[in-house]
Each structure stands twice: as C-alpha cells, then as structure tokens.
Write a protein that binds this DNA or RNA. Structure first.
Length: 295
DNA sequence: AGTAGAACCTGAGCGC
DNA sequence: TGCGCTCAGGTTCTAC
C-alpha cells in the first residue's frame, strides 16, 4: 500500500489522535519486524508526550517532548489504525472490525490525550517488511540522510528534474524509483506519472535532458505530472479518512482512478488514443504503460 | 554503470 | 476442498 501519498494520509489520520497525547505504554507483541525493534523500545517511549507527526518520503517521524524521535516505515503491507479505548468489542456489531484485535497487530501504542481520552494506535503488518527506529536527529539517520527531493510543493520542477537525470542511462522508470533522486515515488505512481507525461518508462533517463543539462519540454512535463499525480493521490486518500485510519487502504483508495497501473490489456484512457495498456517487467517489477502514446 | 535475481514475509487469486 | 503456482504498494544485498 504505502507510497508517499499513503504515508502522508496515514500521518494526517494519526496526527489528531497522537499530537499532544502521552504514551502510557507500548505493547510490542511481535518485535521481529524487518529490523528488530530497539531493545528498550517500550521503556523509552512510556511517559513521553507526542509533539508532532512528520513525514520524509515514505517515512513517518514521531517527535516527543523529550528523547529521540520514532521513525516508522510501513514496508509493503504496514498500516496504522486508531481505536478509542471506549470502543467495546461487541460480537457482530457494526464496528466489529475496527476494535477487533486482528492478526498481525505487532505494536500497540496506548495513549492518553490532553483531555484525558484514551486510545490505541495499532501497527499491523502481515509481511513484516516495515520497521521502526529511534533517532535523536531522524533526518540525519543513515536511512533518511541520502533521500532525494520531495515530489510535493514546487521544488520538483523541470530544471531540478533535469539536473537529477542528466547523463543517466538507466531506464526512466528505474530513475524515478530511485529514492536518492526523488524520495517517495513507488511502483504505482511512477507508472501513473509517466503515463500523464506521455513518456515511455523504457527510454533512458538522460534522454529528457538537453545536452547542456537544461530541461526539455519533456522534463517540464514529467516534473508537473509527478507533482500532480502525488497531489491528486493525497487528496483522494485524505477524502477517505476522517475519524480513523483505515487498516488496509481499500476504502476510497486512489486505485479507483489509476489510468494504467494494473490495467494490462485495457484501452488507454487518454482521449483519442487507440492504444492498449501493456505490462512489462523492469528490474523485477511490473511497469504498466501505453506504447501508443508514451514515447 | 547497469541490471538481474534473490532475500526478507504472508496472503490473495487462479488453474487444476 | 486443496494443492501449487504467481503475484503484491519496499528496500537491500550479491552477482554478472
């Protein structure tokens, strides 16, 4: 599930429940995530108050009033959900799934908010590719220090993209997935952005840069497409979340408006294009694109 | 420099 | 009902 827009959606969903709340206890039911949880993980967090939830690329960063920050990565299948402690589990009740202890609930944060309300933040991750780290200066942690430019805001423009891709012979798709160049794109949104920009995932990354290193119209179009697809996805995710963070991303998820991702064989949705979506494999992962309008 | 493949894990979907 | 196979939103490692 989680690329940058999903992580941002999670951040926005968790913030109201977590910011200003104190950690009463942390229950590490299954500490062997991708990396083992820090040894004194639960002890360190108890008694501290959350000041702010941040995000860098696909990393969620939780700051406290004291001590190191908590860095969370959701891997392929990680998710958080918020449960009010007042939610009683009633068998067969309408909200059954929300308060039920599910399989693969690995870490549970028990919180008390400033107004005294108690809640649980539950981390669920079937595949356990996700992980949590502690760091005094999270942005300087080795796993975050080399991350590239954020594809939100205005910083990712034609010239910035051109300087990143200049001279690169690797396929454009691979370059866009490289987190040290652009931080936060994943397999879905790379396909979507390339379709919007009308660019083939197979062309070399450097081919959309002028010899002198300046941006071509293709680079300008791609930068705009990346920003737009990320912004649209955040909007779509945000609209599906109000009072809680859903567990599996199925509700209102952006997949309902994918143009090419997972649409092999379907007609290209671009008006006037007679092409059909093709699936190819690049560096071991599926790429979806329209050979007719993406050149 | 580039790419392929495997690894880490579990679950869903499909053909038989 | 079940078995075996492929695939999955990420990242990191080794090997040609």
């Amino acid at each position: 599930m989680p690329e940058l827009p999903e992580v941002e959606t999670v951040r926005r969903g968790l913030a109201p429940a977590m910011e200003g709340a104190m950690v009463d206890a942390v229950d590490a039911k299954r500490p062997d995530l991708r990396f083992p949880l820090p040894l004194d993980f639960t002890k360190q967090l108890a008694g501290r108050t959350v000041t702010q939830l941040g995000r860098r690329a696909k990393y969620l960063i939780i700051d406290f009033d004291q001590g190191p920050s908590l860095i969370c990565h959701l891997g392929m299948s990680g998710s958080f959900r918020v449960e009010a402690d007042g939610d009683q589990q009633t068998p067969g009740s309408f909200h059954h799934e929300r308060s039920k202890a599910a399989a693969h609930d690995h870490v549970i944060f028990h919180l008390t908010s400033a107004d005294g309300a108690r809640s649980r933040i539950v981390y669920n991750d079937p595949r356990r590719f996700g992980f949590m780290l502690m760091a005094d200066r999270p942005l300087e942690h080795p796993m975050l220090a080399e991350l590239g430019i954020e594809p939100v805001g205005n910083s990712l423009n034609g010239p910035a993209l051109a300087s990143l891709l200049k001279g690169k012979k690797t396929p454009l798709k691979a370059a866009l997935l490289d987190q040290t160049l652009i931080a936060g794109l994943g397999n879905i949104y790379v396909s979507e952005a390339l379709w919007r920009a009308g660019l083939s995932p197979r062309r070399s990354a450097g081919s959309i840069v002028h010899a002198g290193g300046t941006a071509t119209h293709r680079a300008e179009a791609l930068a705009a497409a990346i920003r737009a697809v990320i912004a649209d996805a955040i909007l779509a995710g945000g609209s599906s979340l109000r009072d809680y963070v859903h567990a599996d991303g199925s509700l209102g998820y952006f997949q309902h408006s994918f143009a090419v991702y997972d649409r092999e064989g379907e007609a290209c949705p671009k008006p006037g294009c007679a092409g059909h979506v093709k699936r190819i494999v690049q560096s071991g992962r599926s790429t979806f694109y329209c050979p007719a309008c993406q050149r």
